[in-house]
Amino acid sequence: MTSRDEVVFGRPARAAEDAPRAAANCALSSAGLSKRFRSGQLAVDSVDLAVPTGSVYGFLGPNGSGKTTTIRMLLGLIQPTAGSYEVLGLPMPDGLPYALPRVGSLVEGPGFHPYLSGRANLARQDAADRTANPATASARIDAALGRVGLLAAADKRYGAYSLGMKQRLAIATSLLRRRELVILDEPTNGLDPQGTREVRGLIRQIAADGTTVFLSSHLLAEVEQICTHVGVMRTGRLVFQGTLEELRGPGAGRVVVRTPRPELAAEILGGELQLADVRVSGLEVSAELGSILPETVCERLVKAGVPVAGLETPRRSLEEEFVQLTGEGFDVD
């Protein structure tokens, strides 16, 4: 697991120094992973990923921040120009043939032959896997189709599928076998709210089976609901990596007290409780909580005779964090 001191806001997480240690229980890890395209554009700039085994890792970033390029490198589709990476503990690219059969993936939207049925498309994917057992193929294909709710449409031409069905078929390919890691690149892209809910439910199921999920997305709500860990990309750099809690704010944040006697409250907070950064604005007093519990604050205030009309510990919204990390122009939708 990522320890708290690795979290550095506004700078790349310091996974590089910890890479050898981290790799031992990481489903995915990289050190200095970079890709410079022939055009000279540095699409991915020394990314140090550490995706803990068993986590649901949200890989966030605006469009064009290098998420898909990173995923393509992890899957051996494109060659990094610098850096190293491991998938399921195997150094790449040498371990590719051994690691990838244990990894399910969906990269940049569904891609299938339009004139083949959904079932035939899955059969083709399975036939390409030299480690899959042909004797169980049809049972596994039906099971995967069943899990994404496509059994009824299994023999329809893929070209006649709706966008939601296409997306679900793409997820089904990653369910053809038991996987240790599933990499999903924007799996809810272009889905209606219902489809999004279905896919989110599927991801929860996959994670509940003990599979590590690496989920690339630019939907904050999605990540907030299902992810345990988060990595944030900005213009090719990993600007944050840690748990969702760590992203939401260091420590417990601030406490805000609403009271008709703000001066007295400020005195207690700053004096008796020794909270830092005490601010008064109108009838509200706020201060940094530090290690003190909000209930303690309330108790002391009341004992000191401060009439407490309200007390809350507001969290900065995830959106605020992202805008701070990735700058303006982040497409939040």
Partner: peptide, 18 residues
């Protein structure tokens, strides 16, 4: 062009084999 190549390679089908 169908987007099936990335899927096959990620299976992995193996480039020489494919």
């Amino acid at each position: 062009s169908h987007g099936t190549l990335r899927g096959l390679l990620a299976v992995p089908a193996g480039r020489t084999r494919l």
